[in-house]
Amino acid sequence: MEIPGMAVATDILAMGLGGLGFLLLVLGAGADCWRQDAKDPLSSVGLSARCRGLWSECVFDNVADLWTCDIPISYLSEHPAVLVVTRVLVILSAFLTLSAIPPFIAGMKCTKLMRSRVLQKQKFSLAAGILFLLGGLSGVVASLWYGIDTVQKYKLEVSLGIPGVTYELGYSYWMAAAGAACSTSGGALLIAADCLDAQAPKRKQNLLCSPLTSKGPQTYL
């Protein structure tokens, strides 16, 4: 059976988006710089740079060229709700995205793990699309909540002139947000393609039956 080139291209694009989403989510959580100190244009050259992540808070000393991190004694101790929820959603997002890859490989049009069982391939592909979409949406919720909380705190500290370090969104946050967007796009693309493939046999059947219905009146004995 010949596989349409468009179907293979769709599978490859969805796999690329899902794999890139998982990679960016892992890198965003591992780099652990979701908030970085805001740059003050009126100040002199900073002597240090600070980063706050989901797991630790780090300081880079520009003079000593030294990077030190403060890791909490226990991750189960009391923390802000936005931090705890973001941790859970990011882990869940990465887990769902990773779980979608095996069934997606089994359901790809260009793989022959299941030979020519088209219906089972469609089921595996649809399941992978749902997992990609759920994983991406989990990351989107985490990114939105954490981003809104960071922006609100930044505006409040600037407006009130609160002394101390003011934080803005860091590069780890943007990597995780991009990863969530990629996973969501890959899942939506895969689900849409599977729905079109499921409707294709019905359209073909209607086309095959249309000549029979277009004939003239028939007599029955």
Rank of each mutant, 00 (worst) to 15 (best):
S48I: 06
W174M: 07
K121V: 13
S93P: 03
K123L: 11
P4W: 15
A193F: 06
W67T: 04
S74Y: 14
A178Q: 08
G107L: 08
I148L: 06
G46R: 07
C33W: 10
S138L: 08
A14I: 10
L20P: 11
A49F: 06
G147N: 09
R115N: 13
D197I: 00
P41L: 00
P211V: 01
P80A: 11
D65T: 05
Q218M: 12
P201H: 03
L24E: 02
V151Y: 00
I148C: 05
V84D: 00
F132D: 03
G5F: 11
G179V: 14
T10A: 05
Q205I: 07
A106E: 10
F124W: 04
L134G: 05
I91T: 10
G161W: 13
S48T: 11
W174Y: 15
K153G: 15
L133H: 06
I148M: 04
G170K: 11
L134H: 04
Y154N: 04
S74R: 05
A29I: 03
Y171P: 12
L113H: 15
W34N: 00
T10S: 06
F104N: 04
T86K: 00
L134C: 02
A7H: 13
G179N: 15
Q199P: 03
S138T: 11
W55R: 05
V84T: 01
R203G: 12
T111Q: 02
Y171E: 13
L66S: 09
G28C: 07
Y173V: 03
M15N: 08
L25T: 12
T68L: 15
R52I: 13
P163I: 10
V26K: 01
P163G: 03
I162R: 00
G107A: 11
V140A: 07
D65R: 08
S48R: 02
L76G: 01
I105H: 00
A200M: 12
A127G: 05
L113Q: 14
G53C: 07
S159H: 04
L131T: 03
I162V: 12
G18K: 05
S214I: 08
L96W: 02
D11K: 02
Q205Y: 13
L134K: 00
D149A: 08
F104K: 04
W145V: 03
I3K: 08
T219K: 12
P211H: 06
I162G: 01
G30Y: 06
L126V: 08
Q218H: 08
A38S: 02
V26F: 10
G170A: 13
A127V: 09
V82Q: 01
I101F: 02
L133F: 11
V151S: 00
D197M: 07
S143F: 00
T150E: 01
S99W: 07
Q218N: 12
A180D: 02
L119T: 03
L196D: 13
Y146A: 03
P4F: 14
M6R: 09
Q218Y: 01
Q218V: 14
C69A: 14
D70E: 01
P103N: 04
V141L: 01
G216E: 10
T213A: 12
I191L: 10
Y173S: 06
S99C: 09
C58M: 10
L83W: 00
L13D: 09
T68N: 09
P211L: 02
E78Q: 09
S143R: 00
K121G: 05
M6C: 05
L24W: 01
Y171R: 14
G16C: 15
V151K: 00
V82L: 02
L47C: 06
S77E: 10
L47W: 12
R35P: 05
L137H: 11
A178K: 00
K121T: 13
M108F: 02
